[in-house]
Design a protein around this nucleic acid. Structure first.
Ligand SMILES: Nc1nc2c(ncn2[C@H]2C[C@H](O)[C@@H](COP(=O)(O)OP(=O)(O)OP(=O)(O)O)O2)c(=O)[nH]1
Ligand SMILES: [Mg+2]
Ligand SMILES: [Mg+2]
Ligand SMILES: [Zn+2]
Length: 584
DNA sequence: GCCGTTTTCGGCCCGACTGTTTTCAGTCG
């Protein structure tokens, strides 16, 4: 196993270098298709469900799609010493800061090349100075408007680089769709892009409309109260930006093209490309206006996504699966997973009450669970050692159990499960004595401190915790908080292996700022045969609806009903909870 | 640079919008 100085090279490290090679080659002016090869290799590496650091040699690398002998050599070099010759050479010709320029909306490789070669621009800093000194005025291809656009682009780059949480994007898109409906009477309108695919973070908000009056709809879109700036306005699409710097793209097509347009606009880009390649191989052409016979340009189908996938000999691909992770091959073979759905979920397995830092009583949480049609709700107030959230003492716990017993008898139609959110200490230990732990129906153990520990320590901590027979579930495993905190360093593969070995369940924390485990990690975990649980981490009744984001994340990780314990009827759920304790 | 149950050469997804290009390149979706 090739090891770099101490730390293993991740697939993402490799993908980043390959992507930089692609970008630098584009700037250099290399043949487009050669740069495309590097981009495709980077995309492929990004989505692999195993670590390239486990690979034995270049031969094995070449078996991977989009990796041939050149790129295999590059990757092998990167695995040895975190760098490859090709990348090093390019960085001798171009400063790494030149790549910043490509982040500016409207500025691509061609203009970056021109700026670097004829004006010596090496960074965004340089570009700002150049523009101030009127240095763009006599550069061919850079007119007055281009200069203004670049300045606006730089401002945008500096002000707003973070992707949105799915929750924020979802709320904004609902508002926009509602307002457009109200103004135009549109019926055919829906979110598309990464929002429809329910990615954990969203770059921009994409909305599709079907209408016979396209200019009218576009006009109303540009008149929206939230349209702070109109970025583009054409016959079929338009982009606006809100005062908060959020971009919203609208695409409008004729109503009978809605299916093909939705398919196009939902993406992902890589999924689209793969499906379009299949169309080409079958003598068709696929675009947002429909599926066409290539020779005659005759329209075959366009109304629904189902028809298009069908004509291409593919199973319908759920939007959550459209990430170019092998779903197109599976659809061809009829082997797509039947991903878990919201209706199959029978309960929430991570909620808090006023006993600790929640805003609603146990009764209120239970009634909300019942209203949502659940069979059970797992109450997991914070355990003793979390002082900042007034973790429960044994005495208070006793009272809580009595209240739960009382409510379970009185309410009917909903079972409150006795749980606890245990704190994993630095040594992997958890709160309470075994006699107390044995009284819970289940526990969720999570890390609430010591985030900065080394990868080795963090991994050992989690492994110790999983060896504890009373730890049923590991909560928010990686500790990431989107746009706020990076995940802790840990050896995910080792943790997954241990979870499988000990029968420990892994949580998909459904709170939109966490979504932890995330879709990629869940996808990787599939081959270990691990069970997963969903919990909203609700601190009030309003949070309980956030379960839908967890279900989407599970689906995006290709989980089926059987993989998710929240789909089990109560008796089976309790059996699963008891299994680990019995075994260890 | 990568790839191939029709191909080892000749393709590589396909289209919209903007700007200054007088006929289309650059960038983005
Ligand atoms: N066929 C094709 N479709 C594309 C291409 N680029 C984008 N699309 C489609 C698929 C995308 O999901 C959709 C919206 O584009 P976006 O750039 O907004 O990407 P997306 O929403 O997937 O991700 P985001 O969260 O916005 O970064 O447009 C492309 O190069 N070819
Ligand atoms: Mg988008
Ligand atoms: Mg977009
Ligand atoms: Zn919690």
């Amino acid at each position: 196993m090739p090891m770099a100085t101490g730390i293993t090279v991740t697939n993402q490290d490799i993908a980043k270098i390959l992507r930089e090679i692609a970008e630098l080659l584009e700037i250099k002016g290399e043949t487009y298709f050669k740069t495309l090869a590097y981009t495709r290799a980077a995309d492929t590496v990004d989505k692999l469900d195993f670590n390239l650091s486990e690979v034995k040699g270049e031969e094995e690398l070449r078996q991977i799609k989009n990796i041939g002998s050149s790129i295999a050599r590059n990757i092998w070099e990167i695995l040895q010493d975190r760098e490859c010759q090709k990348h090093r050479e390019l960085l001798l010709q171009f400063p790494p800061t030149l790549l910043e320029l490509l982040e500016i909306p409207g500025l691509g490789p061609k203009r970056a090349k021109a700026l670097f070669e004829s004006r010596g621009v090496r960074s965004i800093e340089d570009l700002v100075v150049l523009i101030k000194d009127q240095g763009l005025r006599d550069l061919p291809g850079f007119g007055e408007k281009t200069e203004q656009n670049i300045l606006r682009g730089i401002e945008q780059y500096r002000r707003h680089r973070e992707r949105l949480t799915i929750f924020r994007a979802d709320s904004i898109s609902r508002r926009i769709v509602e307002e457009l409906r109200r103004r135009t009477g549109l019926e055919l309108i829906s979110p598309a892009g990464s929002l429809r695919r329910m990615r954990d973070t969203i770059g921009d908000i994409d909305i599709l409309a079907g209408s016979a009056e396209r200019p009218y709809v576009i006009g109303e879109f540009c008149n929206l109260s939230s349209a702070y700036e109109v970025l583009a306005r054409g016959d079929t699409k338009s982009s606006i930006r809100t005062a908060d710097g959020i971009q919203i793209d609208l695409r409008v097509v004729e109503r009978d093209r809605y299916g093909s347009a939705l398919m196009y606009f939902t993406g992902s880009k890589e999924h689209n490309v793969q499906v379009r390649e299949i169309a080409v191989a079958l003598g068709y052409k696929l675009n947002e206006y429909g599926l066409f016979e290539r020779a005659s340009d005759r329209l075959v189908v366009s109304a629904t996504e189902e028809e298009i996938y069908g004509r291409l000999g593919l199973q319908f691909v759920h939007p959550y699966l459209r990430e170019a992770r092998g779903e197109v091959e599976m659809a061809k073979e009829g082997k797509l997973p039947r991903i878990v759905s919201l209706e199959e979920v029978r309960g929430d397995l991570h909620v808090h009450s006023t006993y600790t830092d929640g805003g609603n009583s146990i009764k209120e949480m239970a009634l909300e669970a019942k209203r949502m049609g659940y069979e059970y709700v797992g109450l997991t107030d914070h355990a003793l050692n979390l002082k900042v959230a007034s973790g429960l003492t044994v005495e208070v716990l006793k009272r809580q159990f009595e209240e739960i017993d009382y409510l379970n008898e009185k309410l009917g139609g909903i079972r409150i499960l006795k749980g606890s959110e245990l704190n994993i200490g630095l040594d992997g230990s958890v709160d309470y004595d075994p006699e107390i732990l044995a009284q819970f129906d289940f526990t969720v153990a999570s890390i609430h401190g010591g985030f900065g520990r080394s990868r080795e320590e963090q991994t050992q901590r989690l492994i110790r915790a999983m060896e504890n027979p009373y730890v049923t579930i590991i909560g928010h495993l990686t500790g990431r908080i989107i746009n706020k905190r990076e995940p802790y360093q840990l050896d995910l593969e080792a943790v997954l292996e241990k979870a499988a070995e000990t029968g420990t369940i892994l949580e998909i924390n459904s709170f939109p700022d966490r979504l932890d485990l995330k879709d990629d990690d869940i996808f990787r975990a599939r081959r270990y045969g691990i069970n997963f649980s969903l919990g909203t981490d609700a601190h009030s009744t309003q949070h309980m609806e956030l379960i839908r984001f967890g279900v989407a994340t599970a689906g995006r990780g290709w989980l089926e009903k059987k993989d998710l314990i929240n789909t089990y009827p109560l008796p089976e759920l309790l059996k699963i909870f008891g299994r680990k304790r019995a075994r260890l």
